[in-house]
Design a binder for these strands. Structure first.
Lengths: 152, 152
DNA sequence: TCACATTTAATTGTTCGCAATTGAATGTCG
DNA sequence: CGACATTCAATTGCGAACAATTAAATGTGA
């Protein structure tokens, strides 16, 4: 009876999906760390590179919308990527407010070196691709519902 | 066909479960923010309080194991909670290396004020408890597999 | 007992993440 | 055209998160 109550108590840590997501994000980060160290990237920097490998010459704002990050996070991060010679930052000529982020040749070249990363993550996840895809879709749907509430 | 390839490309941002988890964690944090502001707690501080509300007078190390955090994160966080008069930090008399964390009366009292938080999160999630529990269990299982790989 | 390893917190330095503010460029409306 | 609002990036300040190191307490084996 005490056990029954405990497994239903919404104030118990182990019952909170948010803590599951929070701690899973950190676990992922720890798995990525040694892989990304070889590329001299942090995980958020890796995310920015993923965006740029899909589409080059993107406004900072668009990167922010894709990754749910603002200029307060991205400006210093992009300056570090620029210092590492992976991207160039230039003001748009049509709209001087915007900063366009473009890959350097080194930035482009890094895509190949990063190709093995998703494979390693898949292996560490120790589950099938279809299971992961299903989980991913559920989590994305939950995230989007949460973001919808915030937007109100 | 190009679409088919794109939805399978493991190097695409939208195909990565890690980004789903990462962005969901941030979405959760944004939903929690206004709720926790009323308690003058950050989300990691709230997690520590959840641990202490379950069991009081806990070594710092045990909190770290529950939350997957180390002393580099917890020491300053707990000092802030102590400055807010929510916890006391005392050296264990049996083992002077350990620091025991105990709730103050205010820390205890905060549990009641925090009781409505999980309800609000559930509402924001906009899905049934059973669905959330199922997702939580899947994510925890994935997290534990990832942590097992790290431990090697 | 004494040398040595282990455990535990604390500290330092770097990078996120975000709120709040600033300042410049652009849009809009009278 | 000109006042005003909006958009966008940059900046500042604070709180995580973690690697690496330090220091103290404890445990272990010769």
């Amino acid at each position: 009876m005490a056990r029954k109550l405990s497994t239903l108590d919404p104030q118990r840590l182990d019952n909170q999906i948010c803590f599951a997501v929070y701690s899973a994000a950190h676990a992922f980060n720890r798995v990525y760390k040694p892989l990304l160290d070889r590329l001299d990237l942090t995980y958020p920097q890796y995310l920015v590179m993923l965006v740029l490998w899909e589409r080059d010459d993107v406004p900072l704002k668009d990167i922010g919308e894709k990754l749910f990050l603002d200029s307060g996070t991205l400006t210093p991060l992009l300056k570090r990527l620029e210092a590492a010679h992976l991207v160039k930052r230039t003001r748009s000529s049509e709209d001087e407010r915007q900063v366009l982020i473009a890959l350097t040749p080194q930035g482009h070249a890094l895509k190949d070196k990063a190709r093995s990363v998703p494979q390693s993550i898949l292996a560490a996840s120790d589950c099938s691709v279809s299971e992961l895809v299903a989980m991913k879709d559920e989590i994305v749907a939950l995230r989007d519902r949460l973001n919808a509430v915030i937007g109100e």
